[in-house]
């Protein structure tokens, strides 16, 4: 097992899986190293959940392989399960069991000795501030508290690889921040974390990001490098009659028709527009002649622009 030290903690090689008539995952390669926080980002239906399930061995791939510490997840027994911590997207604990009972149950399944369990339970309860809710049924927890409990259950056995499917979905901003602090702390301790999220702002907080769309990675890099490699121009279109939703829809429809417009999304009272660099001069000419109610101001491209541009290009 000398190779194990150099092997990535989590690895996907040519993963494919068809669900019904959809190629939910259509050829996925990625690696997550120990101490790395990898974000799989994409809109709903991109195939993130399917990819994560393939990676933890809950789905059998049609092709390719998923590995944990260099071992195929399909061949791995209990040792592999102990290396992995997984938190599904949906509610997946027992709603009629209390916080403490859920934790105890998963600790038993992972074979934790009682003394070790008590120590880790206390640690996690304190870290997540769940101790006040020890005896509350899981179904009666708020979204944020529930996610913290699910995370605690996935962490009890000290996995080396943590796989989280939309961990902040349905979580209030304060709890969200706390969850992220917790994640950074875990990653600093050497855990490999793979998380799926539809939120671009969250993706920007990861060490590395894979942009997923229609079952494939469109791009993969650090968030900074992805933004840096962005070669288009981003404008913000202010609409003085923005209060009228009809006016915005009309503006959006007209701008979409322009060949140099690569992506378009609402922002505040206006529209954020990504324009092809080669067509930028043409766009400004068109704009000057277009509508007295519109005003144009330049903005720095961000991560979301990169993603929208790539998705438009792919589809």
């Amino acid at each position: 097992m000398t190779g194990a030290a150099h092997a990535p903690a989590l690895e996907a090689r040519g993963l494919r899986r068809r669900l019904g008539i959809t190629d939910a995952v259509a050829g996925l390669d990625l690696t997550v190293r120990p101490g790395e926080l990898y974000g799989l980002v994409g809109p709903d239906g991109a195939g993130k959940t399917t990819a994560l399930r393939l990676l933890v061995g809950l789905l059998v791939p049609d092709a390719g392989e998923a590995r944990v510490d260099g071992v195929s997840v399909m061949s791995g027994g209990p040792a592999l399960r102990e290396a992995l911590g997984y938190m599904p997207q949906q509610f997946s604990l027992y709603g009629d069991l209390s916080v403490a009972e859920n934790m105890r149950f998963f600790a038993d399944l992972f074979g934790l000795a009682p003394a070790i369990f008590r120590q880790r339970e206390a640690e996690l309860m304190q870290l997540t501030r769940l101790d006040r809710f020890r005896d509350r049924r899981a179904s009666a927890l708020s979204g944020g508290m529930y996610k913290k409990l699910a995370l605690s259950c996935a962490l009890l056995h000290r996995p080396r690889v943590l796989v989280l499917d939309e961990p902040t979905n349905g979580v209030d901003p304060v709890s969200r921040r706390e969850l992220w602090d917790l994640l950074y702390q875990l990653v600093d301790e050497g855990l490999a974390v793979l998380l799926a999220t539809p939120y671009m702002d969250e993706a920007a907080r990861c060490h590395r990001v894979g942009l997923m769309y229609a079952g494939k990675l469109l791009a993969e890099d650090t968030p900074a490098a992805l933004v840096k490699g962005f070669d288009d121009v981003t404008w913000l279109v202010h609409l003085s009659d923005a209060a009228d939703p009809g006016a915005r829809d009309a503006a959006e429809a007209r701008l979409r028709e322009r060949p140099e417009v690569r992506a378009l999304s609402p922002q505040g009272g206006g529209l954020r527009v990504v324009v092809d660099r080669a067509g930028d001069a043409e766009f400004r000419r068109y704009f000057a002649a277009a509508d007295a109610h519109w005003r144009l101001s330049p903005v720095a491209p961000d991560f979301e622009d990169v993603f929208l541009r790539l998705v438009t290009h792919a589809s």
Binding site: R53, V56, L58, G77, P78, R81, E82, L84, G85, Y86, P88, Q90, S92, L93, Y94, F106, L109, F110, G111, A150, C153, A154
Partner: peptide, 9 residues
């Protein structure tokens, strides 16, 4: 919950 259960040993 089966998803969580199957991710344990």
């Amino acid at each position: 919950s089966m998803e969580q259960l199957f991710s344990t040993p």
